[in-house]
């Protein structure tokens, strides 16, 4: 018998073991929900599966009685738009500033302390400032995402740019490259896959800031909806929304990971 540390599950075993906790959690939920509903059929805390089905049907597949819109889709589109805009702008700023400060010592000396300082400001603390400056419209919500994740992306990109071996920077110069060409042909292509991983890492925070901003001031959006129906203890709506948000986050992360592997095989091959 081998030691436990040297034993590995097979393919089927891996899947089974991976699924097991999900199945156990679902069973626990069903048992607990049944027990509560038996004691009080109007219990709202742990709704039965049928309530979820009703709620999903109502939110996703029936037009709302008040507005005539399919709410889940309206909320999803609104949230994803804000998220995409925020992340895209942050990634672009992060790329430009990160490469600039990571490559040019003079720019690093000038900007690094500022960026470090800004990254220490808790974004949620300046949310009121954002609402005051940018009003309660779309801009403030997107700005919160940008302010929340840009400093991290800049600092990560700066670090990645600095990590490029000095040998390669020297090499470029011996091949006749000027500073701009070194940025364009060496640094930029090499930090692109790293930008994708930085974006993947910051997506969690981006969702956090998005939902927080929507909870406070919005008229549609996934975060807005959750916090709206909280008033009626509508767990049958909140939980499917949470699952849906998790699923969206997973899909985005998965897509970025796959894209990176396909687009930058040299990066993943060398690791």
């Amino acid at each position: 018998m081998k030691k436990l540390i040297n034993r590995e599950p097979g393919r089927v075993g891996k899947w089974a073991l991976g699924l097991l906790p999900f199945v156990l959690l679902a069973i626990c939920y069903l048992v607990a929900s049944d027990a509560r509903l038996e004691a009080n059929p109007n219990d709202k805390l742990l709704p039965a599966m049928s309530s979820f089905v009703d709620a999903i049907d109502r939110m996703a597949f029936e037009p709302s009685k008040r507005t005539g819109e399919y709410q889940l889709w309206v909320d999803t589109v609104a949230s994803l738009k804000r998220l995409a805009l925020g992340v895209l702008i942050s990634a672009s700023i992060g790329l430009v500033f990160g490469i600039a400060t990571g490559t040019i010592p003079y720019l690093r000396a000038g900007f690094s302390p500022l960026i470090t300082g800004l990254s220490l400001v808790p974004p949620m603390a300046i949310l009121p400032v954002l609402f005051i400056i940018f009003g309660l419209g779309e801009l403030a919500k997107v700005m919160l995402i940008i302010i929340g994740i840009t400093p991290f992306i800049i600092r990560d990109m700066q670090q990645r740019a600095e990590e490029i071996p000095a040998e390669q920077v020297i090499k470029m110069q011996t091949l006749g490259a000027n500073t701009w060409q070194i940025v364009l042909r060496l640094v930029w292509p090499q930090v692109m896959p790293r930008l994708l991983s930085a974006v993947r890492l910051s997506l969690g925070s981006a969702w956090l800031f998005l939902i927080a901003a929507e909870a406070i001031a919005a008229t549609e959006g996934l975060g807005y909806r959750i916090f709206l129906v909280r008033r009626y203890l509508a767990m049958d709506t909140i939980l499917p929304y949470v699952v849906w948000i998790t699923f969206l986050a997973f899909i985005i992360d998965f897509t970025l990971a796959r894209y990176s592997r396909w687009r930058y095989p040299w990066f993943h091959g060398a690791q």
């Binding site: 040998e167 390669q168 020297i170 011996t174 090499q190 930058y264 040299w266 990066f267």
Partner: peptide, 13 residues
Amino acid sequence: RGIVFQRYSVLPH
């Protein structure tokens, strides 16, 4: 002046 180092001389991308 051209140079070849022990490692990292070629561009991985």
